[in-house]
Write a protein that binds this DNA or RNA. Sequence first.
DNA 1: GTCTATAGCCGGATAGAC
DNA 2: GTCTATCCGGCTATAGAC
Lengths: 201, 201
Amino acid sequence: MSPRPATPAARDRLLAAAGELFYESGIAATGVDAVLARAQVAPATMYAHFPGKDGLVAAYLEQRYDRWLRTWDEVLAEHTDPVDRLLSLFDAVDRYRAREGNRRGCGFLAAATELPADHPGQPWLQADSRLLTDRLRELAVAAGLADPDEAAATLLLCYDGALARSAREWTTPGLHTDDPVRRARGLAAAWLAQQGHRPVR
Amino acid sequence: MSPRPATPAARDRLLAAAGELFYESGIAATGVDAVLARAQVAPATMYAHFPGKDGLVAAYLEQRYDRWLRTWDEVLAEHTDPVDRLLSLFDAVDRYRAREGNRRGCGFLAAATELPADHPGQPWLQADSRLLTDRLRELAVAAGLADPDEAAATLLLCYDGALARSAREWTTPGLHTDDPVRRARGLAAAWLAQQGHRPVR
DNA sequence: GTCTATAGCCGGATAGAC
DNA sequence: GTCTATCCGGCTATAGAC
């Protein structure tokens, strides 16, 4: 879905710089100049690799989606208990943040807030939403839950709650007493326990 | 905190226009020109009322905070049961949205994502965060909950979960099957019931 | 207080040489 | 593919008259 040029060095540096700046300073607030400066790349070189800023933003979101998916896959493969596999979503967030950093909460949530509806990066946001709902539903089915859609929606609510709280707290470290992801995992686990979960097999 | 000019007509029109545009299109993406055009106000007039765009943004957030606080106060006054008063947060969101509209989720969450840490509008975002935590804690104490801080944090998690889900779904109406606020209220109520809530008096 | 007109600037994008 | 230099448009903000 993304053509690889013969000399990807500049492209890789651009994506790395975009990944840091778009995430830390916001997409709209980050100018192309800043990305170019950090990547040590000339303007014309960027436009040889990407159709424009919007295209760079889309590539940034694609990269982020790939890494997030890989991380969740990895964590998921480490668990066999059905409930653990459902809750792996939260452990995957922890691992992703340990790797990629967590200065400003969820990059997808921020992008969903910033980008207009017709932005070329929207497909990746939809891919993320679809991954979450579909996979959680599958895991809920595998866990033998009575209403998989309900379970997926509830876990997703806890998940987004953790991400939104992280986003709100990034500028007010004073009130940031506990870890929202940990709390969300606990709330989700409590809800699952309350459901009268019947394990398969 | 905001000096009232002798002829507030233009100022009011500016605030009304800002309230619509900043919310619906985003703060960074909305130019001053667009606000001026919608408000039918000349540029110089705006700079007579506000120090600049940042000041207008801060006034927009102040206005939004005032209306949100008033709405929550109003809903809160309609309930006497301690648990109902805790859950009034979610009912207040419903009422606020019925009044002010809900095209793009929570304006504060969006602003927290968009604005830099030193923006003059940040105090209003902090005021909102403080209102939520402090008031929820008070209500939890009044409800006789064993750990008021824990209860406030959990309800806040549900609350932000609902708002974040609304934000994600605004562009994908296809997956938007259920109401996140309603679901969050249910999850919060279930958690409260699970706490072994002991009513006061 | 409000207007018209405009200045200054910054960000996205391109031309053309190498 | 990459560079230097530059264009162009839009947006923030101001000057000065009424």
